[in-house]
């Protein structure tokens, strides 16, 4: 048995980092940040529903309202059935929820969960941030709180990629060392395997 790999000491540091990206402090930081973006998006959705009559914007003033009431936003609302602010709120809430699910070794125990989390935060967050940043060219106005949520999306990518990278590294080592599709499939879905555990031991040190 490798150093620190017992059920009494389940927290270990996976390569290539000198910290555990699946530890609670790392993931709670992501969840808190996503929750702040969730609250901002709820506030923007409340304006789009006209439950609140005004939007706070200390920089661009009334431009925020023009963005939130724009034709682009209304078209998206017709497609989605809900305001884009509400969809953003659900997306940020899912970032927080997926950050909190799983153990402190989920990069090994539940790769599928880390991948869902990664897909939610990295490509989807990246695309939504780019869309918000492009709003001036499409709508001709800026919305301060939308830009804040876009900045949070980019920060979330920065904070989330390490865990996804460890997970990809683990899966690629399982594949390279075994060339066994069935084992890789089982490992991805979180089924235990002595062989995969040995591979994981090679890429960790005790926390």
């Amino acid at each position: 048995m490798g150093p620190g790999i017992t059920s009494r000491n389940p927290e270990v540091i996976p390569a290539p980092w000198d910290y555990n990206p699946s530890s609670w402090p790392q993931r709670i930081r992501v969840a808190l940040l996503a929750f702040v973006a969730f609250l901002i998006a709820v506030y923007l959705a409340l304006y789009q529903w006209r439950i609140v009559n005004d939007v706070w914007d200390p920089v661009f003033g009334d431009q925020s309202k023009r963005v939130l009431d724009s034709e682009v936003s209304e078209t998206m609302r017709a497609w989605l059935r809900i305001p884009d602010g509400a969809l953003g709120a659900i997306a940020y809430l899912s970032d927080a929820v997926f950050a909190l699910a799983g153990s402190t070794r989920r990069w090994q125990y539940r790769p599928w969960l880390v991948m869902v989390f990664g897909l939610d935060v990295i490509p989807l967050g990246g695309v939504s941030a780019i869309l918000v940043l492009l709003q001036a060219t499409v709508v001709g106005s800026y919305c301060f709180l939308c830009l804040v949520t876009a900045a949070i999306s980019l920060l979330l990518i920065y904070f989330a990629y390490d865990e996804v990278w460890s997970c990809v590294l683990y899966l690629s080592r399982v594949w390279k060392q075994t060339r066994n599709r069935t084992l890789l499939w089982d490992v991805f879905w979180g089924r235990a395997s002595r062989e995969a555990d040995d591979i994981a031991r090679e890429m960790v040190k005790a926390a």
């Binding site: 017992t6 059920s7 389940p10 659900i90 809430l93 899912s94 929820v97 997926f98 909190l100 699910a101 799983g102 153990s103 070794r105 125990y109 539940r110 969960l113 869902v116 979180g190 089924r191 235990a192 002595r194 555990d197």
Partner: peptide, 22 residues
């Protein structure tokens, strides 16, 4: 949809991993 994909014992390792390490 967001909650339904999560396992019931969401913050514990899967049972088979718990069993292996036990």
């Amino acid at each position: 949809l967001m909650f339904a994909i999560l396992p019931t014992e969401a913050t514990l390792p899967p049972p088979s991993w718990r069993e292996l390490h036990k």
